[in-house]
Design a protein around this nucleic acid. Structure first.
Lengths: 200, 200
DNA sequence: CAAAAATTTTAATCTGCATTAAAATAATCG
DNA sequence: CGATTATTTTAATGCAGATTAAAATTTTTG
């Protein structure tokens, strides 16, 4: 019968599948990716995937859930470790990007949420919204504590998130480039947040 | 036979089709959108679209070409009117966003380039690359003339472009929101470019 | 090693959707 | 108005890809 060891094996394979799917989805889109595309990445047959997920829709749903989870993890760490709003924003961004360009990636871009069935769609929209609000809270905290210049937190959040979300569109696993992104992006994305120094 | 008036009518309808297609593609992706989805937006039948484009692939190709053209137009205007690197960057961003959220939108997100046939794909990749390079040139000019703080232009360009490219993912035509984006984004995206004022 | 469980494949089925040709309708022109 | 041209629809056709069931293979276990 299924033992812990087997569970691990099953879960490990399932995990590999999700990452392969994320790779394909990020490149050709959910609908543009066939299950054959995904399975080929793993040396499997398309039908084999059905041993791990109920159907293709569940595959995206799982990818999106994982993306949301990793984003939340990064934000939680940023909020814990940062000592003011600016630091929290900076650390969240750094952690999120570290995850995306590192061994835990690729992370799926949530670009086809409308293709999800209603219940899954609502779930993803909800976590997505929460994530955005979480970042806006960080910005507000920073504005309150003076570490961030007053700004429209909704729009600023959208701008920063857009940059981050778009990364998988042009980053395809080159580890050297990954290091460069991780090194530059946190500074670039937060440079505009700093309070303006006294004139002159 | 076809007269100027007819040409105009044909072109106008073709234009409407491209915009409807961009709307659908931005929402559900190229592959996730059926020609029925597009035609329904116009009160037409799917088959009618074939009077205007050869096939579905050409439809995306045209959408992407139009997106590239509008981006280039914005950049040209920014380069012409700006009096230094910073101003050129600012104006390009403002013009591009004005186009995207205004009456000339929606502009297609180029998120499924791999789905294009080889020749079209190469063409789009080429104009895309040129656009990125164009923005990097602006940044370099700004660094040289002192209006922009020294930075990694490649990464900074990717960051700014990502924000812009992502807009159609969350902006769906609400004109009030459109005005807000246009009002805030140029400042947000360029705030980090300004040279650091002298300390203290 | 043999049996049982887990994993993958083979081989069908089914469906949505792109595409096309021919027919129908609408617009324009003399 | 009648004829010509432009536009759209109706009605197939064909295929790619999702899904499934049964068979084959691999792995685990006692």
């Amino acid at each position: 019968m299924a033992r812990v060891a087997d569970e691990t094996r099953f879960e490990a394979q399932r995990h590999r599948i999700l990452k392969a799917a994320a790779t394909c989805f990020n490149q050709k889109g959910f609908s543009g990716t066939s299950l054959k595309d995904v399975s080929r990445h793993l040396g499997l047959t398309d039908a084999a995937l059905y041993y791990y997920v109920k159907n293709k829709e569940e595959l995206v749903h799982q990818c999106y859930l994982r993306a949301a989870e990793l984003g939340r993890e990064a934000m939680d760490r940023g909020k814990e470790e940062g000592r003011n709003g600016f630091e929290k924003a900076y650390l969240y961004i750094a952690y999120h990007i570290e995850i995306m360009v590192g061994d835990r990636g690729p992370v799926a871009i949530m670009s086809e949420i409308p293709s999800l069935k209603r219940s899954h769609r609502n779930e993803i929209l909800e976590v997505s919204r929460r994530h955005s609000l979480g970042f806006e809270e960080i910005l507000e905290e920073g504005i309150a504590d003076g570490s961030i210049a007053p700004c429209n937190v909704r729009m600023t959040g959208n701008a920063v998130m857009g940059s981050i979300n778009w990364i998988p569109k042009w980053f395809h696993g080159d580890s050297k480039m990954g290091r460069e992104i991780l090194e530059k992006f946190p500074d670039i994305l937060t440079a505009g947040l700093r309070p303006v120094k006294a004139e002159k």
